[in-house]
Amino acid sequence: MAEAILSVAGLEVRYGALAALSAVGLELPEGAILAVLGANGAGKTTLLRALAGVLVPARGTVVFRGRSIAGLPPERIVRAGISHVPEGRELFPLLSVRENLLMGAWIRRDAAGIERDLARLCSEFPVLGERARQPAGRLSGGEQQMLAIARALMARPRLLLMDEPSLGLAPRLARELFRMIDRRRREDGLTVLVVEQNARLALGIADLACVLAGGRVVAQGPARSLLGEEFIRGFRLGDNPAGRTQAPEP
C-alpha cells in the first residue's frame, strides 16, 4: 500500500484533568479504510474531534500529507483536505438540501466541478436529489445522515472522518452507504477513518482496524485479522456492561 497520508504519534487530549486520549499512534496509508472500534467512552469521538481540529491536543503530533496539522482550527483542517462527518451531523436545518451541499463546497471555487459533484452525489443518494429544495431539518434521520456524508464529500477531501455513519440508518441503507464509501476509495483514492459501533459492518470494508479502550490503542492491525478475533467481540460488546454476547445484526 502507498505511504502514510496520516500519521499520528503520542496524541494526548485532555478534558481538564482527565486524559481522554493518551499516547495514541496511528499510521493510515493513502487509499485505505481504517475502522476505529471501541466501547462508548473509549475515546473514539474524541480522536475524530482532535483530528478535525475541534479539540486541541495537549501533546503529540499529527502529520497529514507531510504537514503538521495538530492544533489547527477546523476551518484550516478542511482546507488541508480532511472532511469530518461529526457526531450529531451539524447540518444547517433551515437551509435546503442543495444549499447544505453547496456549503460543503465552501472551500472550492470551481463552479463547474461543484455542479458535477452535486449531480454525482444526487445520483448516488437519489433521495437527496429528490429533496434538493426541502429544508434539511425536514429530512428523516437516515436522510440527514446521508446528507451529512454527501456534504462532507462536496469538499473533495483526501481523508474523510466519519463518526458512526450507520447510526440511524436501516441496515440495508447502512450497507449501501458503506459500498458507496468503498467505491469512492477505489475510484478516487479517498482515505477513510471511520468510527463505528457496528464492528461487523465496518470491518467488512475496512483494510485496517484499531481498537480503543480507556483512551489508548489496545489493538491495531489488518481488519481481516481482527474480524474473527475474540477481543473484538469483547471490545465491541464493551458497551454492554454484562459483557454478554450481543444479538446478531437484524
Binding site: 477546523p74 451539524e90 433551515l94 460543503g104
Partner: peptide, 24 residues
C-alpha cells in the same frame, strides 16, 4: 451569493460552518 449563504448557514450552526471551512 456564496457569502450570503455562509452567513445564513453560520447563523443556524456555527460549528457546522467551521467544519465546512468557513472562518467565523
Amino acid at each position: 451569493t456564496r457569502l450570503g449563504l455562509a452567513m445564513r448557514a453560520a447563523s443556524q450552526n456555527q460549528l457546522g460552518a467551521c467544519y465546512m471551512g468557513v472562518s467565523l
